[in-house]
Simulated scan of single mutants.
Amino acid sequence: MAEEQSIVSGVAGRYATALFDLALESGTLDAVDADLSRFSALIAESADFERLVRSPVFAAEDQLRAVTAVLDKAGIGGLVGNFVKVATSNRRLFVVPAMIADFRKLLARHRGEVTAEVTSAEPLSDTHIAALKDALKAQIGKDVTLIPQVDPALIGGLIVKIGSRMIDTSLRTKLNSLKIAMKEVG
């Protein structure tokens, strides 16, 4: 437990740790992970749903009704359904994406994996994800779980964060470096 607490903290970490402990005790880690992935996908697929999740302007009752309907339609129940509903009732729905990320960190640590956050300008293909996992595994010596994110402002390239290390090969960063170098010359 002390090891788990060192990789997550704050409100999101407390919720994620509670969910992880419940899933571990009930032997449902994989099912919970799958349901959390589906919930994350629902947020990513709908701008309206993302706005509902992230915006504090909606009343808790309205958020709870809407989230319950989405969970029911998606077939997400059990621990994850209850987890999201409790977070919503406690006015913490906006923190759920961070809670999911913290849960994944705990799960990766439990499995002996390393978590890498990968930001790209466009969604990565399965082939690129597999190649990146293999390259990172060769470098680190452990299995790597990727948490992909998309930021079109990168223009191209990747930003990979593993723990406190960051590798930034984005075109945006290279162009900014070039701009600074040109100012120093001129």
Rank of each mutant, 00 (worst) to 15 (best):
F49L: 09
K133P: 00
R51W: 06
N90H: 02
L178E: 03
I100W: 00
L36C: 02
P123H: 08
E61R: 09
L106N: 05
A130K: 14
E45G: 05
L24N: 11
Q149G: 10
G156D: 11
K133T: 15
T115F: 00
S37N: 01
D48Y: 07
R165I: 09
E25K: 14
I180P: 00
E113T: 13
A47L: 09
E50P: 02
A2S: 15
F39V: 03
E3V: 15
A2F: 14
R165H: 11
V86Y: 03
D143P: 07
L136M: 01
A130F: 08
D151N: 00
E25W: 06
I129C: 13
L158A: 13
V114T: 14
I147R: 11
R54T: 07
V70M: 06
P56H: 06
L36T: 00
S89I: 11
T145C: 11
I167K: 03
F39I: 03
L171Y: 11
F83V: 10
A138H: 06
L93F: 10
P56R: 09
A31Y: 03
K179Y: 07
V11N: 04
F94M: 15
E50R: 15
L178N: 04
K85C: 14
G112Q: 12
I167N: 02
G186Y: 04
A138K: 14
V70Q: 05
L136C: 12
I155R: 09
K73Q: 10
F20W: 11
G112F: 11
R91E: 13
G10L: 02
S40D: 08
R172L: 14
A59V: 06
I159F: 04
A98D: 10
E113A: 15
F39H: 03
S55R: 12
A34D: 01
A66S: 07
G112S: 13
L124P: 13
V53M: 06
N82K: 02
A101M: 06
V70N: 05
G112H: 10
I7Q: 01
P148T: 13
V11R: 06
A87T: 01
D35H: 11
P123L: 03
A34R: 00
F20C: 15
A60L: 11
M166Q: 12
D30Q: 09
G141S: 10
G27W: 05
V160M: 09
T17N: 12
V70I: 07
H110F: 10
D151F: 01
K133A: 15
V114E: 10
V96T: 04
N90C: 02
G13H: 10
